[in-house]
Amino acid sequence: MPLAAFPKCYLDDLMSGEMAIDKWLDVADRIDLDGVEFYWGITPDLDELDRIRSELEARDLSAPMMCYSPDFTRPVSEDRQAEINEEKRAIRATARLGGSYCRVLSGQRRPQVDRDMGLDWVAECIEELLPFAADHSVTLILENHYKDDYWDFPEFAQDMEVFLDLLDRIPEHPNFGVNFDPSNAIIADDDPIELLDAIKDRVVTMHASDRYLEGGTIEDLRAMEDEGSQGYADILKHGVTGEGMIDYDAVFERLAEVDFDGWISIEDGYDASVGEKHLDQSAQFLREKMATYNVG
């Protein structure tokens, strides 16, 4: 099973340009990783991607996954079409980097968008994208997501019941699967193992994240979400994988049951000052689990 990492702790610096992508690749090269997951907000123009791919190859790394955040619950149809077009750009970039997986989401949980209407919109958008993804040898991965760092509202299909309903509306396709994130299920007040049991046959990639709450409760988090503000609430923390609320033994048991051999991408904390140290700890923890359960 190949292991990648997402640069969450460096994301603000990468977005602002304070940290160059090459510096992030240097960090990844010093950790026991096989690849790095890209975030669309830091992905350069197409003419720069060949250079980035060469830099990756020089470090014996790949860029298997693109973390993209389409917003398919925008009420105006022309706006949803614009989101589809932007996702196509992300698919092209994924392929240009040599990657195989590009994330799709449902969109923001806007108060004025009801469940059935939103699910119809999202399913239509994803189905429209599937032939384009297939043409570029890219698999679209639907994540049980919480909230993009730069969104005002949480994920429309955050709740397990809604997520499963959306998944049922999209027929099985060789270029479509699930990116499972166990800690996002915790934040949705769902049981991540129950969710994994329901979707494990369609999981093709996983975000290895761990969460904890500091200075508040799930109820406090819900109240903050309802107010609608950009980014994550201060009480919600990403931690080192294996040190939070997730039972990773139970997760890997389920992955072993379905002979999972896809990419796992580390997604841990926000503190850049200990970013490399924590990523290394997360990588060591996951390599141990991969060996213990003979997955990959």
Results as ranks from 00 to 15, higher is better:
L14H: 10
A20S: 10
K23V: 13
L25D: 03
L25K: 03
D29F: 13
T43P: 01
P44W: 11
I52N: 00
R59V: 11
D60H: 14
R80Q: 12
Q81N: 11
A82D: 09
N85D: 14
N85T: 13
A90N: 08
I91E: 00
R92C: 12
T94P: 03
G98P: 03
R110M: 12
M117I: 11
L119N: 01
E124C: 07
C125R: 05
E128R: 06
T139V: 06
T139N: 05
H145T: 09
F153N: 09
P154W: 08
Q158R: 15
D159N: 14
L164D: 07
R169N: 09
P174E: 13
N175H: 14
D181A: 09
P192D: 01
L195P: 01
D197P: 03
A198C: 10
I199M: 02
D201T: 06
D201V: 00
T205R: 00
L221Q: 10
Q230P: 08
V240M: 01
F252V: 04
V258H: 04
D261P: 08
S265G: 09
E267Y: 08
G275F: 02
D280Y: 02
F285D: 03
R287A: 06
T292F: 11
T292G: 04
T292K: 14
Y293L: 02
N294P: 03
